[in-house]
Design a protein around this nucleic acid. Structure first.
Length: 423
RNA sequence: GGUGAGAUGGAUGAGUGGCUGAAAUCAGUAGUUUGCUAAACUGCCGUACGGGUUAAACUGUACCAAGGGUUCGAAUCCCUUUCUCACCGCCA
């Protein structure tokens, strides 16, 4: 959620930025500023009347103590009238605040200056492409066939147990997955990230805090009996660790990493894009999250991008890094880099990580603030990224590294997997 | 799931209707003093939204788990919800 302050002090700039994100209801900005002015006015009226009541109530107490009952009763009448007044202002205030909130919640985060203009994924800007795309031997297969050949993942079994999009990993296929999770976590913790194992379901307040609610409700699985949501990413529970928190400068930066399964309903997806591990309802992911001082957040974003890049290099995968254009960015993000790896048999890029700076968008909602040495309060910045989402890495590694003898694994995984090859 | 006890500021913890936005202690912080490590003393030390100011100072309101109610006046009384702890039951 944007801070009202920003709209108040610089409405024209806000409108211009919103346009970059292809946001249509620009008029909301003026409406919000007007409502905010009204809010302040009403607040003042409310406070002044309430102050009169408070003063008189104390007075009544004194009079009662002195046994001056008649005087006290007179004041009671007066206070009674003010109370009516105050409750009117109170109701008005509640109404205004509700409207203000409802309008504010609709606004996406403002894109940073570097965000390219554009509406569709085609207009994302590739900032780097590295690694060599392998040339596969004749008869090379897409990962869904390799998975079957080596008996690694069983989709039909998952359908039987749960439904489409819930793969069952088995044998070496399960071990391979676990090896990657273990390696990714080790890689992250050795870079100073503290490891967490969070709850895999969250309450409404948490889903709201990171921006999944109210607008992305349909993407999450909802446990109605208890009012919980299955997490679509570890970002949700882990970032919410710092909900309603006041941090000291010394505490920063907060660097956290967590493995979790991720549950996404992905309503409406179909076709070849969803074949195999390309898109599933339950997948595994290792996430990195940072909470930092505002002045440092873009430096930290670069650091996180470099961190993920190195991980892909270690996995010896060809990748490219995209800076997302305004129209393709997430609602809560100010600047996002997507990482894609080349899937040699499918001959397409697969998104495996998305690293974003949310600036104050999440932290403002979550009330996560920093108190500096002078006692000044400021809203922290939050960032996160995947390092990495597993299924597509899984797919790319299988496809790119297939040989007639089996799947040749990258060196960094050998000790984790307990072997050099899947065969 | 059952029964009981709780929820107060960074922590411990007092407070059962007005003088309590909240004692006290600890932690933190600024300073004074004693020639070190350290100790003693003094001041400051919650958040939000306003007013005010160049900025401060100053000042109004709200907040003692959350929401509602009673009252001229609520941390304190009543109702609802949530959470925590203990014991029992069930269970990985």
């Amino acid at each position: 959620m944007l801070q009202v302050n920003v709209l108040r002090t610089n409405p024209e700039w806000v409108k211009e930025r919103l346009a970059v994100k292809n946001f249509k209801q620009i008029e909301l900005v003026d409406e919000i500023v007007a409502l905010d002015n009204e809010r302040k006015k009403t607040q003042l009226e409310f406070d002044n009347t309430q102050a009169k009541i408070n003063t008189s109530s104390k007075e009544i107490g004194k009079l009662m103590g002195q046994g001056k009952k008649e005087e006290a009763d007179g004041m009671r009448l007066e206070v009674g009238n003010w109370k009516l007044e105050v409750s009117t202002y109170g109701e008005k205030l509640v109404e205004i605040e509700k409207q203000l909130h409802d309008k504010l919640i609709v606004l996406p985060n403002l894109p940073a200056e570097q965000v390219p203009l554009g509406k569709t994924p085609e207009e994302n800007v590739s900032v780097k492409e590295a690694g060599t795309k392998p040339s596969l031997y004749a008869g090379a297969k897409p990962h869904w066939d390799l998975i079957e050949q080596y008996n690694l993942v069983d989709f039909e079994l998952g359908s039987k147990i749960t439904g489409r999009g819930f793969p069952v990993y088995k044998g070496k296929g399960a071990r391979f997955q676990r090896a990657m999770i273990q390696y990714f976590l080790d890689y992250n913790t050795s870079a100073g990230y503290t490891e967490f194992i969070p709850p895999f379901m969250v309450n409404e307040a948490s889903a709201y805090g990171t921006g999944q609610l109210p607008d992305k409700e349909g993407q999450m699985y909802h446990v109605t009996a208890d009012g919980f949501y299955l997490i679509p990413t570890a970002e949700v529970p882990v970032t919410n660790i710092y909900r309603d928190t006041i941090l000291k400068e010394d505490d920063l930066p907060i660097k956290m990493t967590a493995y979790s399964p991720c549950f996404r309903r992905e309503a409406g997806s179909f076709g070849k894009d969803v074949r195999g591990l390309n898109r599933v309802h339950q997948f595994e992911k290792v996430e990195i999250i940072q909470i930092v001082q505002p002045e440092r957040s873009y430096e930290v974003l670069d650091e996180m991008v470099a961190h993920v890049e190195k991980l892909l290099q270690n996995l010896e995968l060809p990748y490219r890094i995209l800076r997302l254009c305004g129209g393709d960015m997430g609602f809560a993000s100010a600047l996002t880099y997507d990482f894609e790896v080349w899937s040699a048999a499918q001959e397409r890029w697969l998104e495996v990580s998305s690293v974003s700076n949310f600036e104050t968008f999440q932290t403002n909602r979550m009330k996560c603030r920093i108190k500096n040495s002078e006692g000044k309060m400021q809203v922290a910045h939050s960032l996160n990224g995947s390092s990495l989402a597993l299924p597509r890495i899984y797919a790319a590694l299988l496809e790119n590294n297939q040989t007639a003898e089996g799947i040749q694994l990258p060196k960094v995984l050998h000790s984790y997997f307990g072997g050099e090859m899947i065969n």
